[in-house]
Amino acid sequence: MDRPIPPSITADASSTDLGRPPLRVIVLAGRGGGAGAGGSPDPLARRFGQQHKCLVPLAGRPLAAHVLQTAASHPAVESLAIAIEREAFDSLFDVLSQIPGRGIVKLVEARRNLVDSVMAAAQGWDGALLVTTADHALLTAGSIDRMIAALDRAEAVFAMAPRDAVLAVHPQDRRRFHAFADGAFAACNLYAASGPEALRAAEAFRGGGQFARRRWRVARAVGMVDLVLLWARAVTLAEAAERLSRRFALKVAPVVLDDGSQAVDVDDDDSHALAESLLLAPAPSRPGAAFTAASAPAWAG
C-alpha cells in the first residue's frame, strides 16, 4: 500500500540535487521484529495499553514517530517502507500524517521473520536501502549520513558503537557486547545495502531477531572456523567484516558510531526513560540533535 506525496516548493532538496543516491529507509515495526499478527504485545506495550510497541507514547508522540521523522526529514530519503501487522496500518498512517517529509511511504505486512519482512519492504526499489527498527527513537541524521557514505566503499554496512560510548549514555545497559581483538561493541540495529542484490547478507538473520544469542545461527552465517576466532577475540571488528565479505561474496564493512545513544533501543522501562530524557533535553545537549520544525509537507496522501 503506497501513498504518494504531492511535490511542494517547501520540500527539502532531493537526494539527486545533493549528489546522493536515492535511499529507501525500511523500518521494522512488527511485533518481535517481524512476528505475525498472532503475536502478543511486549511488556512495554502492555504497560501503556497498546497492542504494538511502536505506538507507545514517548516524549509526547508515538514511539515510531521519532525514527520516522528523522528518516522523512533526511534529504537523501525518497521512500519509506514500514513493515508492521496489517491491523496497525491505519494507526501508522495517523502517525505519518503528522510528520513533515517528502517522498513515498509504503506499508507492508510484517512477515514471520526479519529477512522476509526486509525483502517484502524492499520490493519495487532498485536503489540503496537502509534498515532500522521502529524503536530506534534516537536515530540521528548524522548516523544516516555515515551509513550512506560507507556505501562508497562497501555493498553492505552495519553500525556498531563502542561499549564505553554506550555505557556513557546508558550505564544500566545489561546487554552482552560483541568482543573483538580491538574492543567490545554494541550493535545499533542500523544496516545499509547498496541495492536489493546486496540484501543476501541479510539471510544470516533468517529465523528471528535474537541472532547473536543463538550459536547455531551465528555458526551457519559465519562458518565454524570464523566463529571460533570470534569467540577467542582473535580478530578485530574490521577483520571480522572481511571474513563476512568472503562468506557472502560481497563487500561488508562496519561503521563505528561514537555516539552511544545510537545503540539504544526503546524496549523496556529503563531505555524508555533514557530516550525520553534525551529527546526532551535542550537541543545542544541532545546526542546528534538533528532537525527542527516542519521544512516539508506531511507524509499523507
Rank of each mutant, 00 (worst) to 15 (best):
A156S: 12
A156P: 03
A156I: 05
V157C: 04
V157S: 04
F158G: 03
F158I: 05
F158S: 06
A159Y: 01
A159G: 13
M160I: 05
P162R: 00
P162Q: 05
P162I: 00
P162K: 03
R163T: 08
R163P: 03
D164H: 14
D164Y: 11
V166C: 07
V166A: 04
L167H: 13
A168Y: 06
A168S: 10
A168D: 11
V169D: 03
V169I: 09
H170R: 09
P171Q: 13
P171K: 06
Q172S: 09
Q172G: 06
Q172N: 06
D173Y: 07
D173E: 10
D173T: 05
R174H: 10
R174N: 09
R175L: 06
R175D: 07
R175S: 06
R175W: 07
R175A: 08
R175F: 08
R176Q: 08
F177W: 15
F177H: 15
H178M: 08
H178N: 10
A179K: 09
A179P: 14
F180D: 00
F180R: 01
A181C: 14
A181G: 12
A181I: 08
D182K: 12
D182F: 06
G183R: 03
G183N: 06
G183H: 09
G183L: 08
A184Y: 01
A184T: 05
A184R: 12
F185W: 14
F185N: 01
F185K: 00
A186M: 14
A186V: 08
A186N: 04
C188D: 04
C188K: 00
C188L: 09
N189L: 14
L190T: 01
L190C: 05
Y191W: 14
A192G: 05
A192Q: 01
A192D: 03
A193T: 10
S194T: 14
S194Y: 02
G195D: 10
G195K: 01
G195Y: 04
P196Y: 05
P196W: 02
P196V: 14
P196R: 15
E197F: 09
E197A: 15
A198E: 02
A198G: 07
L199P: 00
L199S: 02
L199V: 09
L199A: 00
L199T: 00
L199W: 00
L199E: 00
L199C: 12
L199I: 04
R200I: 11
R200W: 14
A201Y: 01
A201E: 01
A202V: 07
A202L: 11
A202R: 03
A202H: 08
E203W: 06
E203L: 09
E203G: 12
A204K: 00
A204I: 08
A204T: 00
A204V: 07
F205A: 06
F205V: 03
F205Q: 02
R206P: 00
R206H: 13
G207V: 06
G207M: 01
G207P: 01
G207D: 07
G208W: 02
G208R: 00
G209D: 11
G209E: 08
G209H: 14
Q210C: 13
Q210M: 11
Q210P: 10
Q210D: 15
F211H: 04
F211L: 14
R213C: 13
R214H: 13
R215I: 10
W216I: 11
W216C: 09
W216R: 13
W216V: 12
W216G: 12
R217M: 15
R217N: 07
R217A: 09
R217W: 06
V218L: 13
V218G: 14
A219H: 13
A219C: 12
A219Q: 12
R220F: 05
R220E: 08
R220W: 10
